[in-house]
Every structure is written in C-alpha cells, then in structure tokens.
Amino acid sequence: MDTRDAQRPLRPGEYPDREMPDEPGLGRWIKRNPWLLTRLFMVIVFSFGATATAANFSYGLEINPIPLSVEQINSGELPPEAELEDFVEITGTPDYGEDTRRIGTEESSIGFVQRYSANYFYFGLEETEDNLLIQSAQTPPDVTDESERVWRGKLSNVGTVIFHDTTRDGLKNAGLTTNQSVPIIETGDTPNYYRQIFPAYSTILGLWVLSLAWLVWKRNKPFLDE
C-alpha cells in the first residue's frame, strides 16, 4: 500500500513542518543582533566610568573653597551654598588626646581606619568639639603642631565617608562621634589633586563619546567586516 502522501489533515492555524513561520521573541532578536548588544554593553561600561569621572572632573575645577564658620557647625548648619563633595575650609585647633602615641585608642582621640593599603586618620577641633571631624589620608597628623590653622578639603559626613562601617568602628574606638550627620573635611581630597590627573579623566570621557558614536554608526555590523 502506498503511504507516501498520507498525512494527518491540518487543523485551522497549523502549518506543515517545513512552512512553520518563525516565532517572534526576545531570544530570536538577541541571536539576530549580537554585535549591536556587544557595542551597547561597551557603552554601558564606559557610562559608569564617565559618571564617576564627570563628578571628579567638576570638583577639580573648583578653585576657591567655601568657608565654614565655627558658629554654623556648632549649630548644626552649613552655608546655603555648601553641599556634600564641595571644596570647603575651616579655621580651628586640632583636638588631640593626652597620649598620641597610641593612635586609634580613646587616649589619643585620633581615629584610625585601615582598608586594603589605605590609611585614614580622624580627629576633632577644639572649637567644634564633636560637631566636626577632620580626615587625613595615608600619613598621621603632626601631633607636635597643635596651633590653629586652616583645614581645606572635600566635604562629606560620617554617613557618606569611604568605608562607612569600618570608619564607624574606628571612630568609636577613639571615643569620637559616630553621628552620621556630623560633617567631615577630607583634607587629602583637594581639587589640585584631581587637576593633576585631568588627562586620564579626559581619556575616559573621550572613550565614552567614541563608544556612543561607534554604536550609532555601526550598530549590528560585525567587527571583522569593518
């Protein structure tokens, strides 16, 4: 018996196996656009770098620090024009403890925080007591100099400072305040430092712009055909 042409009758909406239409879907779109997605991924990566770079680039352009007064700090206020990550300054006398040989203890009143290869030191000012902290990076403060001076740097606070949890423990061990709203002046973070590495920042921003242009121009064209 000849069964070569025998097959089940097709139901409404069914197609022969060889004529089955392609089903739309995300997976099929991804397979059709691998190079577009690759370029889009590169744009996203450079966008993250450009976001952080833009903030540092902007900070590096600041020249004149915003002055903070002792009265404002002790009343829990900041100048209206001062915001976190601004370049600020204050005049005051460092408030070290009785035994500065034991940095990181309550006797020294100098907080010590170490993370990876970075060292940070924290202390207060006599004029502002627990209402403000000074941060110095890498090298400990000169405890032999207890004269009044001007402290300049980037404005942050206990809640936003780098290595937040570790810093809080270091401040607590030194008997310093752990109130998250207390301002901190990061003296090692000045606009001059960022101006020195402007070429590197310019390179990152340039690569981000190029990645955008490459995405718009080539889209889904394979790399080897370029």
Rank of each mutant, 00 (worst) to 15 (best):
P21M: 10
Y122W: 08
E62Q: 15
S69I: 10
P67M: 04
T91Y: 00
V70T: 04
E81Y: 14
I44Q: 07
E126G: 01
G49V: 03
L133T: 06
T53G: 06
P79R: 08
V45I: 12
R18F: 15
V43F: 09
R39T: 05
P80T: 13
N131G: 13
S47C: 13
E127H: 06
T91I: 08
L36C: 08
I110F: 06
Y120P: 00
N131T: 12
T100W: 08
I73T: 07
P65S: 06
G104W: 14
Y116G: 02
W35V: 05
A82H: 10
G124W: 06
S75R: 14
P67F: 01
E62S: 15
E71P: 04
D130Q: 11
R101N: 10
P24K: 07
E89K: 08
F41M: 09
G92W: 04
E85M: 12
T105K: 02
L37C: 05
Y96P: 00
N33R: 09
S117F: 05
G124Y: 07
S47N: 06
A118W: 02
P80I: 14
S108I: 03
N119D: 08
P21C: 10
A54S: 14
L37G: 03
E71L: 11
D95S: 09
T128A: 07
S108Q: 03
L133W: 06
T128M: 03
L84A: 11
L132N: 01
P80A: 14
E107F: 05
G97W: 00
E77I: 13
S69R: 03
N64I: 09
P21H: 12
A118E: 06
F48E: 05
I73G: 05
Y120M: 12
I110V: 11
I30K: 03
S69D: 06
G60E: 11
Y120D: 10
W35S: 05
E127N: 02
L40V: 09
V70K: 01
P34L: 10
E107I: 02
T53Y: 15
Q135W: 01
F123Y: 13
L40F: 14
G124K: 01
R18Q: 14
F57P: 02
R32Q: 13
G76Q: 14
Q135I: 07
I66Y: 11
R101Y: 13
I73V: 14
R32Y: 11
I90V: 08
Q135T: 08
D99E: 04
V70Y: 11
N64R: 11
T105P: 04
Q135S: 12
P21L: 11
